[in-house]
Amino acid sequence: MQKKTFNMGVAYDVLNTSLLLLLSLITLYPLLYVLFASFSDSNMLAGHGGLLHKPLGFTIASYRYVFRNSSIWIGYGNTILYVVFGTMLSLAMTTLGAYVTSCKDFFWTKYIMPYMVFTMFFSGGLIPTFLVVKGLGLYDNPLALLLPSCISTWNLIIMRTFFSGIPRSLKESTKIDGANEWIILTRIILPLSGSVIAVMILYYAVGLWNGWFNAMIYLRNRSLFPLQLFLREILISNSGDDMVLGINDAERQTISESIKYATIIVSTLPILTIYPLLQKHFVKGVMIGAVKG
């Protein structure tokens, strides 16, 4: 009897683990394929059938094309600016909103909270929002990427939940000592909120880094484009062919495929290298949100 259960336990573990390894492989392999293909010789890659388990004839030729392409650099520069300033703005606004609504003794809260939450239920939709942003003179203006999406109500609620968890007695004792709300927020609340601030920075920064839709509808001037818009051109609209002028069509086609692989690596590697280091903060954000959800 005991032997039988033991065997069943082992079988269970083996089945479980192999299922997970298979899942991990499915998740990881497309990325590995892109990595191998990006270092492969483009002609060998074009003639190759089936999967890759190592680069075919190691070369960095396609990376040379990518780094020589000025739009990648312009896009990178713009995206970094948008991420830095957009995150600062979003964080400041979200903190203010979250702090105000976490103050239970502030009577206005009972009007502000429904005022904000209602926007999660109902929105004017794409067209009126577009017309308002355009009416404000933000069309073809980089601020159109930062202002309209500045506060995520969902993030604000996560932050508010966190603030509400800080003991009231701490605030009240500071108030008795004569501190105003600004001092309470900056000296008491924020120093205690490191983890939720980290979560907010990560959420907003990743959103800005990956965002492209607002840029597509609001920006016309190519020198303002974020990286994702250029990536869309190269990967989806196939304009990457322009990078390899002066070669015959067939060869250009082959090389432009290799360039796509290298472009994906160049644009995605930074975030994928940083992410495992920050993973626990992201997960924490989901947990804080889950308490409320």
């Binding site: 492209w212 990967l235 992410y275």
Partner: peptide, 21 residues
């Protein structure tokens, strides 16, 4: 770590990969 990773890849890149593949 592996299974959370694709969440951080941008939609443009994911769809771009779909196009290539």
């Amino acid at each position: 770590t592996i299974t959370y990773m694709p969440h951080f890849i941008s939609l443009v890149v994911i769809c771009g990969m779909a196009y290539i593949f």
